[in-house]
């Protein structure tokens, strides 16, 4: 049986899709057969970030409505073996997704894959609820910022009450915290929440901290999951997080502000594109 992992956050723009792409690629790189599903019907970003947007023929809505078979809609990644993408539809709205339809897709994928990643849309509406409903594990993506932490807290409550595991009163969904866009220098200046503050509020195990890094935007724009940029700190942080997810004990890196601004600028690049 495949493990179903939802990548969720409540708030938009915190890095769910970047994380989904990086994590799915990272798991596949480690030899795990992985499929990543874009639940953001109507917006459709995952295929862009994965660099497969020109290969999309069918999407998840076509499969649910019986217009295409799952195998026709799945896109096999050409760079990473064992990785597949199920894109979202850009022409439908979220009502086209049904719980029964998604259940059928996940069941079918379970036979062929080790991990099924569900890239959740923002919010706590139908699309987000469907993305998390079947989850065995959850990666909660949070920025070190008050509203993001608040929304993540909210989604954690939803996970423990509205997921299938909660409804069936089974062992609860395993939660992982991934803090993204972390800038130690801004934390030091008091412009961002400290990692400890985020951890204290959310009170779930920390999977990783991904520093704010220009490589993320570059990766998005070139359709390359940032984990493939092994030189970048963000890529390394995602690689560490995947390792921890698979049970390795790795120290958290990139948490300290750099003493030399010149070197810091070269490494972290600030917010410039």
């Amino acid at each position: 049986m495949a493990q179903v992992i939802v990548v969720t956050s409540g708030k938009g723009g915190v890095g769910k899709t970047t994380t989904s792409a990086a994590f799915a690629t990272g798991l596949a790189q480690r030899g795990k057969k992985t499929v990543v599903i874009d639940f953001d019907v109507g917006l459709r970003n995952l295929d862009l970030i994965m660099g497969v947007e020109r290969r999309v023929v069918f999407d998840i809505v076509n499969v649910i409505q019986g217009e295409a078979r799952l195998n026709q809609a799945l896109i096999r990644d050409k760079r990473t073996e064992g990785l597949a993408i199920l894109p979202a539809s850009q022409t439908r709205d979220k009502d086209a997704l049904t719980r029964e339809g998604v259940a059928g897709i996940i069941e079918e994928l379970s036979a062929d894959f080790d991990y099924i990643l569900c890239d959740s849309p923002a919010g706590i509406e139908k699309g987000a609820l469907l993305a998390l409903y079947f989850a065995d594990q959850a990666i909660v993506v949070t920025n070190p910022e008050v509203s993001s932490v608040r929304d993540s807290d909210r989604i954690l409550g939803v996970l423990q009450s509205k997921s299938r595991r909660a409804e069936e009163k089974r062992e609860k969904v395993k939660e992982h915290l991934l803090v993204t866009r972390y800038d130690p220098n801004r934390v030091e200046r008091g412009e961002m929440l400290k990692l400890e503050d985020v951890r204290e509020i959310l009170a779930i195990p920390l999977l990783g901290v991904v520093p704010e890094n220009e490589s993320v935007l570059r990766a998005s724009n070139t359709g390359t999951p940032v984990i493939m940029d092994t030189e970048s700190v963000a890529g390394q942080a995602y690689k560490d997080a995947v390792g921890r997810f698979l049970g390795e004990e790795l120290p958290h890196r990139f948490l300290e502000p750099d003493k030399k601004p010149g070197l810091f600028k070269r490494l972290f690049g600030g917010r410039a594109a």
Binding site: R150, D151, D153, R154, G157, E200, I201, A203
Partner: peptide
Amino acid sequence: VRSGQRIYAQGADLIVTGTVNPGA
């Protein structure tokens, strides 16, 4: 107790061993 959650101890005291987060 997380943001958006609401817990009511009817006719009873309520003991929370952890935190009650903002919005809860």
